[in-house]
Computed example of a mutant assay.
Amino acid sequence: MIRPVPPSHPAYLRVVRTSAWYDLVVTAAFATPWTYALVHDALSKLGDALKLGTLPALDPIETLYANLMGSVVVVWALLRIINPLPAHGLYDGLARTLFSTWQAYALAHGAPRWLWVFLAAEMALGIVQLAPWWRTRHTDLMNPPAGQPLGDAGR
């Protein structure tokens, strides 16, 4: 079994930076109406060719939400690329948990099946970034400082 490194370990910061690069590559094209239209068309054509489903026709509100998401994710990715911190991995893991939840919801309600690829990536990166925190918290709970009752560690 692969053991997660503590969030303070340099390898963890490489994971934070790698997840940021993934976000930048995958979402940069969502940040503008023009590039989103190209991505929308490409994903629909690919989904149609692979028989995995297409996207509905573009509308201004969908484009707005895609652009808002793309803009925020690009800025968040740049922060983690330029200055990766352990806390960034924690928050990114939490955000990926939310993204995964909403992607699963969309899939359960008829979203194109190619979304499974993105859901798998979100879940994997979320787990890799959250596992060291869970392990650290779990270790702290099981080994409290001398004189401190079990369950009060870290308060």
Rank of each mutant, 00 (worst) to 15 (best):
V26K: 02
K51T: 04
P56L: 07
D48E: 12
A29W: 13
P144F: 08
R14K: 11
S100A: 14
Y65Q: 12
Q129D: 09
D41A: 11
L130C: 08
P56W: 08
M69T: 11
H40P: 01
L64P: 03
D152R: 14
G93R: 01
L24P: 00
Y22I: 14
G70A: 06
A37Y: 05
T27F: 14
P144R: 12
A106D: 13
S71P: 02
A42N: 10
L94M: 12
L107R: 05
L64C: 13
M69S: 11
E122I: 00
V39E: 02
Y22L: 14
P7K: 08
D59V: 02
L52R: 12
P145C: 02
A11T: 14
V39A: 15
S100I: 02
L98M: 05
L58A: 01
E122M: 01
A37N: 10
Y91W: 13
A87I: 15
P10R: 04
D41P: 00
A11F: 05
H109Q: 10
R113G: 05
P33Y: 11
F30W: 15
L43N: 09
A66I: 03
A104Y: 10
G53V: 04
A111G: 06
V5I: 12
P84S: 05
Y36K: 07
L90I: 07
I127M: 14
A146C: 04
T32C: 09
W116C: 11
P33H: 12
R96G: 09
A57S: 13
A87Q: 13
Y91S: 01
D59Y: 10
T32Y: 04
L115S: 11
G110N: 04
A95K: 04
Q129I: 01
D140A: 15
L38M: 11
A11Y: 01
V128C: 07
E62I: 03
L107H: 12
W114R: 09
L90E: 02
H9F: 08
T54E: 13
W34F: 13
L94A: 15
V73R: 01
D92L: 06
V117H: 04
L64M: 10
V74S: 06
A106P: 06
R137N: 10
T18M: 13
L46K: 09
V72T: 12
L107E: 04
T35S: 15
L141F: 02
T18L: 13
I2N: 11
V74T: 00
P7T: 10
Q129F: 11
L79S: 02
M142V: 03
W102N: 04
L125T: 13
D23T: 14
R80S: 00
Y36R: 00
Y36S: 05
F30H: 10
L64D: 07
P149V: 03
L94P: 00
L150F: 06
L107T: 04
G70R: 02
D152H: 10
V117D: 02
Y91F: 15
V26E: 04
A95P: 04
